[in-house]
């Protein structure tokens, strides 16, 4: 497992009587793109919160490039190189798009280089026109891109995207998919998404979660044909 960027061992979290994430063993290789799907409440976003230190697991371990980061502070984990786009865009509403990118890039770069990175990312996410506008006034779709750009500006080795295509038009979804594939050339990614069209556009390997546990892990084609997965999505009590 030496080439794994991320590995979880028996990762669990319990809220009172509910085990939101249940004994998850998950491995992601360097530069791998993994899609994480599952019905609402399957524990996908909770898993992301565990990986970024926003929640502390009740059991299990998280290894990032072999280092145990279980229970580390959120900012320390981010410094190791994990970036996340959260489900509801988490932004600085009073600040400009440019300031977001600047803040993200400036932590690891000198001022001069930071400006170049910010301009480059603005170009890449196509938001140069609104660079100096307050983020609070942008539409949901644009906010998604601002957050994606902010994460990219920090250049983390592992990028977690929680529903990056939500609230986007068909064209925007296609563009996001293209962007994800482009990012994947140099970075490892885990993408949580409900939009199966979007998943089909980017996925190679898919992990399906259900009731906090990993149900199956397989290629996209085989997942689509999997009877258990279909049952879970249609609400039958299947589960393994």
């Amino acid at each position: 497992m030496s080439d794994a960027i991320l590995q979880t061992v028996g990762l669990s979290i319990r809220f009172g009587g509910v085990e939101a994430v249940r004994h998850v063993n998950f491995t992601l290789a360097e530069r791998e793109l993994r899609c994480l799907i599952g019905p609402n409440g399957a524990g996908k976003s909770t898993l992301f919160k565990l990986l970024t230190g926003q929640l502390k697991p009740t059991a299990g371990r998280i290894l990032f490039r072999g280092h145990d980061i279980t229970g580390h502070h959120t900012h320390a984990i981010a410094r190791r190189g994990i970036g996340i786009k959260t489900q509801v865009p988490s932004l600085f509403d009073g600040l400009t798009v440019h300031e977001h990118l600047w803040l993200s890039a400036r932590r690891t770069h000198p001022a001069e280089r930071t400006r170049a990175i910010a301009d480059e990312i603005l170009e890449r996410i196509g938001l140069t026109a609104v660079a100096n506008g307050a983020v609070g006034q942008l539409s949901h779709g644009l906010r998604q891109w601002v957050e994606l750009g902010t994460v990219l500006a920090g250049n983390p080795d592992l990028i977690l995207l929680d529903e990056p295509a939500a609230g986007m038009t068909h064209d925007e979804v296609a563009r996001t998919a293209e962007l994800v594939r482009e990012i994947n050339r140099t970075h490892a990614l885990i993408v949580v998404e409900h939009d199966m069209q979007f998943v089909k556009m980017i996925a190679r390997t898919v992990t399906v979660m259900h009731q906090g546990a990993v149900l199956v892990e397989d290629t996209m084609d085989r997942i689509l044909k999997n009877a258990t997965v279909r049952d879970v999505y249609l609400g039958k009590h299947g589960g393994s």
Binding site: T74, H75, G83
Partner: peptide, 14 residues
């Protein structure tokens, strides 16, 4: 930025 959104700052490594 912290005044605007603490959680985001943490996620950016501050």
């Amino acid at each position: 930025a912290i005044r605007e959104n603490e959680a985001r700052c943490e996620l950016l490594g501050y």
